[in-house]
Design a protein around this nucleic acid. Structure first.
Lengths: 153, 153
DNA sequence: CCCGATTGACTGCCGATGCAATGATTGCCA
DNA sequence: TGGCAATCATTGCATCGGCAGTCAATCGGG
């Protein structure tokens, strides 16, 4: 019935294993690429999420990035202290603190974005564009599934 | 030339962003699935890598999992203390310590493997098998590229 | 109108991770 | 043969992330 059974799930054929490895390697490389901006890969992701309006608040940002809420608060502390992010309490709902980028925050995020574009174009250099597109679509699909899956047996 | 440019790299279309999200979500779910065995997702990966002979030593295991070498030592400490992993100093090269699973280690790893198979079959339930296969192939390819890429501009 | 449930931000605590340095061992090359 | 580089395991150190708990604000049902 299913794709996997006891005869074909090995480290080298396991989607989870491969995704983990890709994430680790990509993460490490981007961290190095961002070093001269004093940013972390994760911090940059947060800036971009805010920039493109995916996450108006701290809790939404944590959900969007599948990141811990508490850790996110501390991370925004850092980014705010560096003058990259602004916190403004919401008028209609006083629990909420709205996030936005400062001018410098936008500038840094966009500079780093160019670096990321270069990295990925390098890694995808040999791939037909069509194949990249389906790969991205599949990742989106998997992500949606995982978000919807509350637990597994 | 490249696939990405300033007009199409967004959180929702970025491979890195999506891979990170999938990894986080999958990781969290597997951690919960392994809770009754007292194992972490990462610990299980280590057991499996050893089991299938991908990583005879601690350093090789760290490389295979794109994990920190120092952290790996401590992780093996834990697994050894629980009686899941054995350490044996190599005869020919006295620097290296060979790793192997105890009987209980094998048993735990295989029990967890069944859970992982169930999880992934659930997540891939709607996918044609052919599509899953190409997805895995693409992940392998990306992993190889990332391993070979020393740095990026 | 009030009380319980929910949501958002924040904090303390613990374990895990990444980095750098150390000591021991081996291999290589002049 | 002697010394230098590389590799392996290990260990501090600082940081980060996940979990649980707290407080404040909002929402919804009786």
């Amino acid at each position: 019935m299913g794709f996997y059974d006891s005869t074909n799930l090995y480290p080298d054929t396991s989607a989870g294993y491969l995704i983990r490895a890709c994430n680790q390697l990509c993460h490490a490389q981007l961290d190095r690429a961002f070093a001269d901006e004093g940013l972390t890969c994760v911090q940059w992701s947060a800036l971009v999420s805010i920039y493109f309006g995916r996450a108006p608040t701290c809790a939404a940002l944590a959900r969007d990035m599948a990141h811990d809420k508490g850790a996110m608060t501390r991370m925004i502390d850092v980014l705010e202290a560096r003058g990259l992010v602004r916190r403004d309490r919401d008028d209609s709902d006083r629990r909420v603190i709205n996030l936005s980028l400062t001018e410098e925050g936008e500038a840094v995020a966009m500079r780093c974005r160019l670096k990321v574009i270069d990295c990925w174009n390098g890694w995808f250099a040999d791939w037909p564009h069509e194949e990249i597109a389906t790969f991205i679509t599949q990742l989106q699909r998997l992500r949606t599934t995982l978000e919807a899956s509350p637990a597994c047996a």
